[in-house]
Design a binder for these strands. Structure first.
Lengths: 206, 206
DNA sequence: GTCTATACTAGGATAGAC
DNA sequence: GTCTATCCTAGTATAGAC
């Protein structure tokens, strides 16, 4: 048992996440991470074997929230509730984990050179599950016949952009940080456009 | 006048674009670019002063198509035509310039450290123009009251994802290259969902 | 205009003192 | 468990022959 070790690892991981998000894998120097938390470089190597291990740990820390986001597709029986919750969840992730999201986006952008195979498989399973659910709703006439895979691509992209490309968002919203209201507006706008666009009418109030 | 020089520069630029797209700025080595076109490393330095200049040239080569994409907002007087064309154009860009798009995305992802100020300003102008046009259409009752800025974010993200995150797209579509049909399906799906989602009904056939 | 050889620096990683 | 000093590889860039 080593609470000190876990605590220090968490501090390093957080600093690494931010640095990798801003500079990419190759662009990140161990010394930058060390400086950010005012720790000597060698200390980083004591807690994490090497740069690759540290990077992979950052990637893995984001898997749980990412996989949890698809839960609404399992939980609900109507696309109105499922898509509403899914969009809310994804926007929450963009708000709360922008750096981890960027590291992940960067990884995908470059063809996922560091993404472990087992994670890829889990993501594929989740996607297949969500796709099947969408197709069922289409078959039942609960929504329009919209290509499920492409609808998912649209949902992922439109929600993640608030984390991954937040530089651009902030530029055009003329703000230093995307505020609570703008996240809410983003979420509401997406929900409104997507639900209506897919011909989803909410069932009568429960 | 030096046709040889221009031709060689174009070859280097193309190789650089692909390499920067796959590995990012810091992850790209000049020697990788040189090897790809079977040219000695020093030759690259003869045609481009240094790595930064070369990278910036790649970035700038993408500005023209990018700015052109917003033309539909100026050209048309009805959101149905404008948004349809805009989506088609953006998907075309993702199909035809996936690498340049990735370099640009990577740049934004990291906070645009190499993007020249004049380009940023041009992009801002285009965005303001498109936003104003959307607001006019809303005011005229040609479409629902959808936050124009957030609609743009959605459109950008949903179209660019077919270039920037094509690794993911290919993974889930189980293909080695996104085929013509899938690009068409992407385009059609987006147009259908967005137009309906914004309450845009096309005017009667001209 | 092209290429070889090389100078120079940055950055990942480790040895070993404390 | 922490830190200093150092090793060593890799990668940018240039000098100068052809």
């Amino acid at each position: 048992m080593s609470r000190i070790r876990d605590k220090k690892r968490a501090i390093i991981l957080s600093a690494a996440c931010e640095t990798f998000a801003n500079n990419g894998y190759a662009g990140t120097k161990i010394i930058d991470i060390a400086n950010k938390i005012e720790t000597p470089k060698a200390n980083i190597y004591y807690y994490f074997d090497n740069k690759k291990t540290l990077y992979r740990s950052v990637l893995e820390s984001f898997i749980t929230p990412l996989l949890n986001a698809t839960a609404p597709f399992d939980r609900y029986h109507h696309p109105a509730a499922a898509l509403t919750d899914f969009i809310k969840l994804k926007i929450e992730i963009s708000k709360n984990h922008p750096n981890a999201s960027k590291v992940f986006a960067n990884e995908i952008l470059h063809g996922a050179p560091h993404l472990p195979q087992d994670i890829i498989e889990k993501l594929c399973q989740q996607t297949t599950g969500a796709c099947n659910k969408l197709q069922q709703w289409i078959d039942k006439g609960l929504m329009d016949d919209v290509a499920p895979m492409h609808l998912l691509f649209m949902l992922w992209a439109a929600t993640q952009t608030y984390a991954d490309f937040n530089w651009q968002i902030k530029l055009h919203l003329k703000t230093d940080a995307i505020c609570e209201q703008q996240f809410a507006l983003a979420s509401d706008t997406l929900i409104k456009v997507i639900l209506k666009g897919c011909g989803i009418t909410p069932p009568m109030a429960q």
